[in-house]
Design a protein around this nucleic acid. Structure first.
Lengths: 236, 236
DNA sequence: TCCATTTTTCATCAAGTGATGAAAAAGGGC
DNA sequence: GCCCTTTTTCATCACTTGATGAAAAATGGA
């Protein structure tokens, strides 16, 4: 029943220092992020967020407006950082391997920033990836949200792959991207299912093992689909 | 505000024929299934389910008890059918190709029943797959639910693959299974994202195109990971 | 036809929901 | 020190939530 009061200052009401004000906004976003990730948008109440942040309910509306706007703020906060990291990674790869790009190299440049951020970015980023994976699987408004925030970098991936394998049809590249993103999102959300399924042989949080397998897995998948479809087309 | 009254009978209250009674139970499950799939467990109220089914709210509690029990009933209804179809498909493949099984063949036997059911089973099954994909990505209780219902057939897949590639480590097979299930679930939930992403080049509902690509994609991925890990081990 | 049983409806509860307006507290500029 | 602005709290609203008990209606067996 009582609030956690973990981070907010203890005494009195009224206006605190400007620094604290900004801090509270971030504290609210952190609390909301964790809760939304665990229980989804409808599974969380503004009161829970307030309690987790150690803040009055009204303060959330003061800073963010309606509940949905709070969710959007959570989603937006890290989306830009993510896009910049991925774009930079891909540009760096293209620049460094201009003459000798491989499918696997391009895919690694696309995925690896996310794995690194998840490993080094702390719990906030872990929650954020769970959130994105959840949105990615939400039929009602998830597709639109993903499109709005992440389309450009995906098109960059597809175009780069097209330049590496000019004979590949866009249709095949988009299907393969869907397969890739499904694997990637499920992996990043670290649901723990693989832990129990493998009876301790594998661990969701072991992203180093993922790195040793996912890039090669996806690259081989892309190559196989491209080869197969071109063969089918040639013989048809 | 007013209920849809789409399917329930029009007049009077009281006990209808026994056939109608069973029908109403199914009607409620259908309505709940569609709504839960679109908006998640917390995004749906029992009143919405009642309205969609054209039924009094109290009737839902009469038949199913608490809201969560209704959800479980929805999940359970098709899980068994699904497991039987997949198990039969894999057994048939093993029997027919005892001496000459391939990784791609096994994977196809594992996935194809789901694609066929989704194509031929009507809207109810489509909703159900969205629901499963959603649960699969739910960190709080999703992993446990998936484990409870779907572990056996997954172990059957892994064991069969192990018999085809005895040199493969279980660790690799489980990781590859995770990649596979991520692709498969996202594909089955038909979010429509690939439609807008590819600007009309691909369609979520075009499962024939999926069939022509997903099996080959996953099989190549498995083979690549197995080969790479064995090479790493040998040289390490 | 009467009666025990099952199904359906109605009315309502207690708790919780998102949201808001106004007052109180704390700064900062002068 | 005074006043204007910003931040925080309090009290509360109008509504929705999941759930239930009891009454009403329909059924089927004797």
């Amino acid at each position: 029943m009582t609030a956690t009061k973990s981070r907010a200052r203890a005494g009195g009401r009224g206006r605190p220092s400007k620094a604290k004000g900004l801090d509270l906004k971030e504290t609210i976003l952190d609390a909301a992020e964790g809760l939304f990730a665990r229980h989804g948008f409808y599974g969380v109440t503004t009161r829970q967020v307030a309690a987790e942040a150690g803040v009055d309910t009204a303060l959330i509306h003061y800073y963010f407006g309606a509940k949905r706007e709070l969710f959007d703020a959570v989603f937006l906060r890290r989306a830009e950082i993510l896009n910049q990291a991925r774009e930079a990674s891909m540009n760096a790869y293209v620049k460094a391997n201009a003459g000798a790009m491989t499918v696997e190299g391009v895919i690694e440049a696309f995925i690896d920033p996310l794995l690194r951020i998840s490993q080094d970015g702390g719990q906030g980023w872990k929650s954020y990836f769970v959130l994105v994976a959840q949105v990615n699987n939400t039929p009602a408004w998830g597709g639109e949200t993903m499109t709005r925030f992440f389309d450009p970098v995906v098109h960059q991936l597809v175009e780069t792959l097209k330049s590496v394998r000019p004979e590949a049809a866009y249709r095949d590249l988009y299907w393969c991207y869907q397969f890739l993103t499904g694997s990637m999102m499920l992996t990043l959300s670290e649901t723990g299912r693989i832990d129990s399924l493998s009876e301790g042989e594998c661990h969701s949080s072991d992203l180093e093992s993922v790195r040793q397998r996912l890039f090669a897995y996806c690259a081989a998948g892309f190559e196989a689909v491209i080869a197969k479809q071109n063969k089918t087309l040639a013989s048809g």
